[in-house]
Each structure stands twice: as C-alpha cells, then as structure tokens.
Design a protein around this nucleic acid. Structure first.
Lengths: 199, 199
DNA sequence: GATTAAAAATGAAGTAGATTATGGAAAAAG
DNA sequence: CTTTTTCCATAATCTACTTCATTTTTAATC
C-alpha cells in the first residue's frame, strides 16, 4: 500500500470503523484530493451546492450560518480527524445555507458527491462506513439537542470544555459562544467568574 | 408478495427510498414484529438498552428526557410513518437516557438490533436503506439545532407549526413546549396572542 | 353523566442572559 | 516595529422568557 503522508490519518480513521484490505483503502483514499487552504478561506458558501465532504488532516475549520439579524451562529467546528461540510447541502445536493471557513491554515482531504456515490455502489463496505458515520453524526447531533434543551449557558460551556478541551483552546471565543448559544460577553463572564472563584 | 395489512405502510416507506424486489421487501419486514401499545405505555426507559427501532403504523409517541431538576424535555415525536427510539441507546446498544411513551394507543413495527445487523450483512441494499435513514435523521437534527440557535420562541413555534401542523394538533401542548425549548405557559401566551391579533 | 384528574389560560413578579458601550490586549498586516 | 484590525473583559441597562400562583377548560375514569 502506498503511503502518501497526508492520507495516513484518513486511512487510520477508516480502519478504526470498518475492516478494509489495503487495496480497498487505496481505492477509497484515491478518490480524495488534497486541498491546502489559508486561514479565512471559505470552502462552502450559501447558495452554492456543497460539492465536497471534507476530512481535516491539519488545521481548524468552522461552519456557521448568518441569521436574518446578521448574527453568526456556529454550527460545527472541525479539527484533525474530523469531517466538515454543510450537511444538508451535501447529502441532498442542494444550495448551502452555511459558510465553512478555515480558522487556521489547513490541509483537508475532499471527496465529491459523485465519487462518494460511486464508491458506495462499488463496495458494500464503503456503504457501511458511510452508514456508521451518518449514525454517529446523528447521535452526536441529538446529544447536542439534549444539552441545549436541558442545560444553562454555564453548564453547556462546562460540558463542551470537558469533552473538547482542545477545541476550546484553539478557536476564537466568539465562535465558541455562538456555538453554545450565548453571547461572547456572557461566555467571557462565565469563564472569568470561574477564575476568580479559584482564588 | 404477502400483504399483511400492518406491514403495507412500512413496505411503501422502504420502496420510496431504495428499489427492492418483492422478495427483499418480504425478507425485510419479516424481521419486524407487530406490537400494540396503549396510551401512557413505555417502550423505552432509562437504564435499559433500547433493544428496538420502532416504526409507527398508527398512533403517536413521544421521546423525552428528565433533567436533574425534574423537568421533562421532549426530544422527538413520532406519528404514522415515522421512526422512534432512543437513538444513542439503540445504535451504540448502551443504556438509554430517554423515555419513549405512547401519547395515544398505537400500533408499531419493531426490529431488534441483532436482526437489523443481520439484514445489513445479508444484503447491501438494506445497508443502503439504513445509511439513507441515518443521513436524513442527521440532516433533520442539524436543522433543528440551527433553528434553536437562530430563532426566538415564537419563530420556533411558527416554523414547527408550518412544517408539522398535524403533530401540533395532536400532541399535548406541554410536550410541544418542551420540544421547542420553552415553558408551556409561554407557548400558551404565544398562541393566544396570535388568536387575539386576528380579530 | 357525574366526578376527578390532566391540561391549558392568564397574570404578576423574577431572572438568565442579551444588548450596548467602552477600554485594553493580542494578533495581523504593512 | 508600528499601525490597524480583531478579539476579549468588564459593567450598566434591558428584555425575552421563566416561575409561581390561581382559574378555567378539557379529557379520563368510575
């Protein structure tokens, strides 16, 4: 099996979910193109169809929507070994409502919808991989819905920080606040209250 | 193809998503058992593993969690032609955190996790069906997250009412309020304000 | 169909979190 | 390395929504 360094983490990602032969792994990753993007560069924009599903090799990205009143709401973050896209746009191949932008210079692996469809038809194991991925995505979205319904702003921050400390350290606070459904001012207050209480 | 009346809507549901032969349809539905449940009866409870994925033939059900302070939060509704379970419990086969209860006497079709696994192994088309189902579930969960982040209580109600008027007419208002992330009192106010404005 | 229980309506008072405003620190960009 | 832009902290004021308490309506049950 050829080892192009950028593909290694995606290969590990696949193998952790479904048992593939070397040949299958090669077939899978050969449909992904390596894309390097600069901080602040967009890979998805509203009104354009999200052509790609993107796997992050290096860097950090953010998906967000802009509401009628002009406010940004972060829908997802992605760092190393995570996937990102406008989910509704990609799976239905309809115009996006989100922006997906790099928070840092990044290296991503992208597969387009047609190639993905072809892969799934070619080998049921690829179908299985995407089924597992979709199920886990749905499960994690549902956990987020439950968290949003049941917890206060402070609890939501504490919970996210406990689960994803590396993301918290890496992304701008205003993007995190909008992900957690609060203002950047309120998140600042929560965090600084905490610091004072420690003394 | 045998036509047991309870299975017909599930068969239609399958055919609308993947092209199956009559034999495949029979194979699929034969793994589902018909269960009749009474109003207020539970099919999933916290700490027990959600053994089944349930398809609603007739009736209405509700999935909810109870938070530390004792409040109920509705996670999902299901009426005719919808699926319901504790998603995280079912796909990971770990203890549930939700209750799933009948809001009306209901007829449901249930498949257990082992039978589903076996089906997916037996025929890639079944795998495809569950992949499509999971993707659409994830997509709709994400739309709900976006709605919750971007909209006011009144907008959330209006939007849900526009998309699912039959559900709104059918479920108790306090369950809808807790689904939409507001108190039953506030939802009552929203709706009655509306009525007055019409005069 | 009378009785009881559950659900919905209404209003007053309270609060979590938003908004607005300003100053300062960090990080890009030249 | 200095200038500009982005990001974060802090505080005062405000509001969308909650909480609490009571009444009315609707639905279940004997």
């Amino acid at each position: 099996m050829e080892k192009i360094v950028e593909y290694q983490s995606l290969i590990d990602h696949l193998q952790a979910r479904v048992s593939f032969s070397d040949e299958e792994l090669n077939q899978f990753v050969s449909d992904f193109k390596i894309t390097k993007i600069k901080k602040r560069q967009f890979i998805v924009q509203p009104d354009f169809i999200a052509k790609y599903r993107s796997y992050v090799v290096k860097g950090a990205l953010r998906a967000y929507v802009v509401s009628d009143d002009g406010q940004e709401h972060t829908i997802a973050f992605a760092i190393e070994d995570w996937w990102i896209s406008d989910y509704n746009s990609y799976i239905y191949q309809k115009p996006a409502t989100m922006f997906v932008v790099a928070l840092e210079d990044a290296v991503i692996l992208q597969i387009d919808f047609k190639a993905e469809t072809k892969l799934k038809k070619a080998n049921p194991k690829f179908e299985t991989f995407f089924r597992i991925t979709a199920e886990r995505t749905a499960a994690s979205f549902q956990r987020r819905i439950i968290m949003n319904l049941t917890s206060s702003a402070e609890e939501r921050f504490e919970s996210f920080n406990a689960e994803f400390p590396l993301v918290v350290k890496r992304v701008p606070q205003y993007t995190l606040a909008s992900y957690l459904g609060m203002t950047t001012e309120f998140l600042s207050k929560i965090r600084n209250k905490k610091v004072k209480n420690k003394n």
